[in-house]
């Protein structure tokens, strides 16, 4: 890991690291595009390429479109037709009303939102603070603290969830949204991601602040944090997505139907009523739409997060 020594990267060229990597990446992409355009792709292989792309597109996106289509079909429309009909004959939002009558789907969505938002706030604050200390401050016990986070990352959640469940019972937090958030509220991996981001900053950027007599908190807030915005965005997005999508832990810790998050609520909807696929479809669309919109807007950070997370994980 490159994160442990900061002195090596103290080059002025890296001063605007975050901004300039994006610029170089864009430049590289343009160069790639030009080179590829120069290395002319024969029409036949281009056509073949698009056919393959469309096939994979159908495999990846088709199921979502089918679900959307099902959710818009009215009660009178046969959803079991052979061959399957992709376009509803009389599109209706009735199923979205109906799912709200069967389960309090909007309350569940609000619960999910609360959990996800808290998870973002705690992860961003907690992991940037810890990451900063590990990367930029020198003190006795720093190595040991780093090891604690690495070890925590190696323990799979699935093998400690029973103990976490017991802990939550002991804290009288069972069946609360706080219990859903707590175990992951400052992820060890996020701490390590932030540590690496801070460690890659050149030493000079804090120097002027030190000369001006800024203390460590001022340096953290005014100098270091603004320089790692990109990584903070990655942490925030993955914290949101992780909490919004999580299923196993909320399933274990929540037993009261009024406290459910969307994922647990949808599972409940599917199991208890064995209802109409149209209504279940409406519920799943409600659960997935916010994330798809978010992904469409912030794609770059999603992809970046995969790269950084995978290398460290």
């Amino acid at each position: 890991m490159s994160g442990t020594t900061t002195t090596g990267s103290a080059t002025p060229a890296g001063a605007k690291q975050e901004g300039s990597t994006r610029r170089t990446r864009r430049r590289a992409r343009r160069a790639e595009r030009i080179r590829d355009a120069g290395g002319q792709l024969p029409t036949r292989s281009l056509v073949l390429r698009y056919i393959l792309l469309l096939v994979v597109f159908a495999i990846c996106i088709g199921p979502f479109l089918w679900q959307l289509s099902t959710s818009l079909k009215g009660t009178t429309e046969d959803i079991y037709t052979f061959p399957p009909r992709w376009f509803p004959s009389h599109p209706t939002l009735g199923n979205y009303d109906k799912v709200a009558q069967i389960i309090p789907v909007w309350d569940y969505a609000l619960n999910s939102l609360k959990v996800a938002a808290s998870n973002v706030v705690t992860n961003v604050i907690g992991s940037s603070m810890a990451g900063y200390a590990l990367a930029r401050l020198r003190f006795k016990g720093r190595k040991l603290a780093g090891v604690a986070f690495v070890m925590a990352m190696l323990v799979p959640l699935e093998s400690i969830m029973i103990a976490q469940f017991t802990t939550m019972r002991e804290l009288h937090l069972n069946n609360t949204l706080i219990a859903v958030v707590l175990p992951g509220c400052i992820g060890a991996m996020n701490v390590l991601l932030m540590r690496n981001a801070f460690a890659n900053l050149p030493y000079e950027i804090e120097e002027a602040a030190i000369i001006d007599g800024a203390n460590v908190w001022q340096r953290f807030l005014r100098v270091a944090l603004p320089s790692v915005k990109g990584t903070i965005a990655v942490v925030a997005i993955f914290a949101f997505m992780g909490a919004w999508d999580d299923f196993l832990w909320p399933l274990i810790v929540l037993s009261d139907t009024s406290k459910f998050t969307l994922t647990v609520g949808l599972n409940y909807l599917n199991g208890t009523f064995n209802t109409n696929p149209r209504v279940v479809a409406a519920g799943t669309i409600i659960a997935v739409l916010p994330l798809i919109v978010m992904f469409a807007c912030l794609q770059r950070f999603f992809f970046r997060g995969v790269g950084e997370g995978a290398v460290k994980g």
Partner: peptide, 30 residues
């Protein structure tokens, strides 16, 4: 000079939330 500008306790204040959560909800459960 950088090390001198922070009090000996402040690194641990920075680490406190992260370490508490990690200890309480990962290492202790393990």
């Amino acid at each position: 000079s950088a090390t001198r500008t922070h009090a000996a306790s402040s690194p641990w204040l920075f680490l406190l939330p992260g370490l508490v959560v990690t200890a309480a909800f990962s290492l202790y459960p393990f």
